[in-house]
């Protein structure tokens, strides 16, 4: 990249760094607050107000309470199962649908887009959806967590936009070729939008990781509950300790609240850089075009 830097550009460059750094620091603070709070001695934590710049005292009781809970391991295992299953289903269905919708000029294309988008606004409600799951025989089955969220209309649209933006692509012929070229096109277009694929994959993964509501209503066996649901249970059960008169229980609840966030988020932080390298420019070697 040519590097002609006028003084103005140098100032702008420095300003750029400054602004982005400032924003990042403001975004970093709450996570640090949570981390420090989770490690603090609860009594000193509760006596503290304002910014938390380092742990107040030291205590691992929060983590002990959360991690020694026998259900955490089962929760993690289940979440990984749902994650893997969900990603496989979603990343097969979504590109198929997105590519097809990116093609134009075939009957009912706009109708289908509208019908898909419609589902982002209107839903039958809790009870009718429950009845559908039940009548399909999926109640208390892991498929009830994987299938209903298989395709997210939002992600579908994002991927479709990316397909449409591939330069010089998707002429009429591309959308008309027979079964043979189907696979070849697939092998070309998907790598073209590698960054968007990574992002959509990330969105599905995070959504599945954070979800607990469907598990709460569809899974009767607690052996199938995912991590987030158990974390909520731990927090709420310790809250009833908070209404008790035992000061220790009240303090513990505070610690648990923070420890729970760290336990739930650390895996994401660990895995994230692997997804990030696909959409942060700088590692983009090789051409974009096929």
């Amino acid at each position: 990249m040519m590097d002609k830097r006028t003084p103005l550009e140098k100032v702008l460059h420095a300003l750029n760094y400054a602004v982005v750094t400032a924003v990042s620091l403001m975004c970093l603070y709450p996570m640090l607050h949570v981390l420090f709070a989770s490690l603090s001695d609860p009594m000193r934590l509760l006596a503290h107000r304002g910014l938390l710049l380092w742990p107040q005292g030291f205590s691992l009781k929060g983590y002990q309470a959360v991690l020694s809970n026998p259900n955490i391991l089962s929760g993690y295992m289940n979440t990984i199962i749902y994650l893997a299953g969900g990603l496989v289903v979603s990343m097969v269905l979504t590109p198929l649908g997105a590519y097809a919708l990116a093609c134009k000029d075939y009957p009912f294309r706009n109708v289908l887009v509208f019908l898909f988008v419609f589902t982002m606004y209107f839903s039958g409600g809790l009870i009718p959806n429950f009845l559908v799951i039940k009548n399909l025989g999926l109640y208390d089955s892991r498929w009830a967590i994987i299938l209903p969220t298989a395709v997210s209309t939002y992600n579908l649209i994002v991927m479709r936009t990316a397909f449409s933006s591939v330069p010089g692509a998707l002429q009429e012929s591309a959308c008309l070729d027979g079964a043979n070229d189907f696979v070849i096109l697939y092998r070309i277009y998907i790598p073209c939008i590698r960054a968007t694929m990574a992002v959509v994959c990330l969105f599905y993964a995070v959504s599945q990781w954070n979800s607990w509501f469907n598990s709460m209503i569809y899974l009767q066996s607690s052996s199938k509950w995912p991590l987030q649901l158990w974390l909520r249970e731990i927090l709420i059960n310790s809250a009833s300790g908070g209404t008790s008169d035992d000061a220790d229980a009240l303090y513990l609840q505070e610690l648990i609240r923070y420890a729970v966030i760290i336990v739930a988020t650390v895996p994401i932080l660990v895995v994230y850089p692997y997804a990030q390298k696909y959409f942060m420019k700088g590692v983009m070697l090789g051409s974009v075009k096929g």
């Binding site: 809790l126 429950f130 209503i217």
Partner: peptide
């Protein structure tokens, strides 16, 4: 044993 956090929903269903 339903989830404590979802007791009301569980009752509704």
């Amino acid at each position: 044993h339903p989830a404590v956090s979802g007791l009301q929903e569980a009752m509704n269903l």
